Structures are given as structure tokens and as C-alpha cells.
Amino acid sequence: MENIEKLFSFIDEYAEKLSKEHDLTYLDSVLETLNTWLDGEISPSGSEPTKEEIRKAIQLCILKGMRQSAQPNHQMTPDSLGLLLGYFVEQFYEKEFKTNHKITVLDPAIGTGNLLLTVMNLVGDKIQGVGVEIDDLLIQLAAASAELEKQPIALYRQDALENLMIDPVDAAICDLPVGYYPNDEVAKEYEVKAQEGMTYAHHLFIEQSLKYVKDGGYLFFLVPDHLFESEQSALLNKLITQKAWIQALVQLPSELFSSKAHAKSLLIIQKKSETEKPVKEVLLAKVPNMKNMKALELFFAKVQKWKKEQK
């Protein structure tokens, strides 16, 4: 923790200085600081920081900036959820990782890159990342963070729901942007397009991700708890039934969210493939309070038991 605090102070002090001198927002000055560090013009004192220390220090600075800017699209997935999602990526790609096989992972709403970088740092040098983000500042922060952490991520700045210029990927992860998607011209090309009014963006992101994941690949989504209960859920159910198998639906601890309305679950699906079969039983589970280590151990044991029973 001491190294992270020192690194945070190093970035924060330089960013505050830039912010005052050049009348920049704090987040813009954080980006400028990271780029100046990358250029070798400044560097933190002491021993070389680890990838995770760099990620966490940058995350603290970005969180500080987001509190100041209070933009609704500037939000970050909590570390605990990133680590939990990374655990499931490890479980489902255990065979590939054991044989040192690298996989490509798409995050179609990468933001500042924190979720994908959390997963990549957790599993080691086994992932080639691909990220899409329309916000110019966020994608630049993601690029600088990935470069400082020496993690390979190919980034594309565009509306992720339009045609993507990316090769098929092995897996997808996403903290789905929840709400309505304003561009009906783009939405009308989707099977989950609402019959009346605007379509849910989170439904569109699920369909779009399925297009770019290879047959048999897994998709890991942080979804609203009420995903399958909304007025548009019948179309989403139809899409998932046709194109994927549900592997798991894991309810996340309520204390991680500001209110019950914002609570999320982890949905894991597998894109259908001629060589794969659906699981014998879908994993339905609830993550306990993440401070309760004994309960967490029991939860992970349940996941391991479920995984063995599917073989």
C-alpha cells in the first residue's frame, strides 16, 4: 500500500501543478502527467513499481478526477468486481492458460481500461486485449495506463455498436453501459431492437459482443440484476437462446452498489459451437460479503465443484 500511496502522490502532485499552470481539468492533467512519465521526462522515485501498483495509483487519480467532473459516462468498475471477473476468466480458460496459450479478450466499453487491465494483471502475460471506447479522454487514459503497465491492448476509438474493424476474439468482458441507446439508425440493424422507442444499450452490447467472439468463446458481462425482467427482455432472451448457452448467473454483493436499483450480477455465456455442448447445469450462485473470507472460500469451493461436475 505504501508504494501505491507514493505513486499516487507522484502523479497527483504533478497533475495538480499542471492543472493550475495550464487551466486544465484534473483528468486532463492526469493524462498529461502519464504521457510525460511515458516520455521519460519525469519518473517516480524508489524501486520500480509493479503493474498492479501502477494500475491502482492511476485508478485513485482517475477516481479523484471523476468525482470532480461528475460525468455520468465517467465511471469505474470496482476492483473487487474486476478481480472476481478475472477469477472466472481463469476458471473458464484454465486449459489454455496451463498450456501457455494466449487468448484475445475484447472489452467493447473499455473506458479507462481499469476492468480489462485488472483481469490482465491477475492472469499474467496470457491475454492480448482489445478495447473500444468513444470518449476521447477515457481511451487516451486507457492507452497511457496500458503502456505504463506494459500490457498489450489494441484500442479503437469509435461507437462500439457500429461495425468494428477488429478480428474475431476468444472472449469478451464488459461492465455493460446501462440505459437507452440514442442512435435508432444503428439500433435497427440489431435483433434486440425494441419494437417501440429506444433500445437498451446493454442489450445491444451483448448482441454486438456475440458477433465478434469466436464460436465456443465465453462472454463475461456485469449486468443489471433486472436484466431478464425488463419490458425488452423477451428479445434478449430469444437472442441468447439462439446464439449462446448460459453458463452462470452470479449475484454480486449488494454492499458494492449505492442502491438496490443499481445492483448487478455476473452473467457468463458461451457462444454456440458445433464442437461444444451446453453445461449440464447452469451455475446459479450469490457472492457473499467480500470481507467474509470464510464465506468467500465456501463460494469458490462451490464454483470449483460445479466446474468439475460439468465435465
Rank of each mutant, 00 (worst) to 15 (best):
D159G: 03
A144M: 04
L122M: 13
Q158D: 00
L141R: 09
Y156E: 13
E147N: 14
I134V: 11
N183P: 03
Y180C: 11
E147G: 07
R157N: 05
N114R: 07
K150Q: 14
D159Y: 07
S145V: 01
D136W: 12
L117V: 08
L117G: 06
Y156A: 11
Q140G: 05
D184Y: 07
E133K: 05
D136F: 13
K126M: 12
V178D: 07
A187W: 10
I134C: 08
K126A: 11
I166S: 06
V186G: 10
S145K: 05
I153S: 01
L141K: 09
D184G: 06
T118Y: 12
L161T: 04
T118C: 11
Q128H: 14
Y180N: 12
L116S: 02
D175F: 13
L137W: 02
Q140F: 09
Q158L: 00
N114W: 03
Q140V: 06
P182W: 10
Q158F: 00
D159H: 06
L164W: 04
A146C: 09
P152W: 09
A160R: 01
C174D: 04
M165A: 15
K150A: 12
P182H: 09
Y180P: 04
I134Y: 14
L176N: 04
M120Y: 03
V119R: 08
L137P: 01
E149W: 10
A142V: 06
Q140D: 10
L116G: 01
I166C: 07
T118I: 09
D136E: 15
A171P: 02
Y180H: 13
I153A: 03
E147S: 14
K150I: 10
N163Y: 15
D184Q: 11
L117E: 05
E147L: 13
D159E: 08
L176W: 06
G179T: 01
L161R: 02
V119N: 06
A154C: 10
M120D: 03
D184A: 14
M120Q: 11
D136Y: 12
P182G: 10
P182Q: 10
Q151N: 13
V132L: 08
S145E: 00
D167L: 14
R157E: 06
A146R: 07
Q151I: 15
D184F: 09
R157I: 04
K150M: 10
V186T: 15
E149K: 12
L148E: 09
G124M: 00
K126N: 13
A143E: 15
G129I: 06
A187M: 12
R157K: 10
L122D: 13
E185H: 13
A143C: 12
L141V: 06
Y181E: 04
L138V: 07
A187Q: 09
I173E: 01
Q158V: 00
N163R: 14
V132C: 08
E147A: 15
V132H: 05
I173L: 07
V169I: 01
G129M: 08
D125K: 11
V123D: 05
G124Y: 01
V178N: 06
A187N: 09
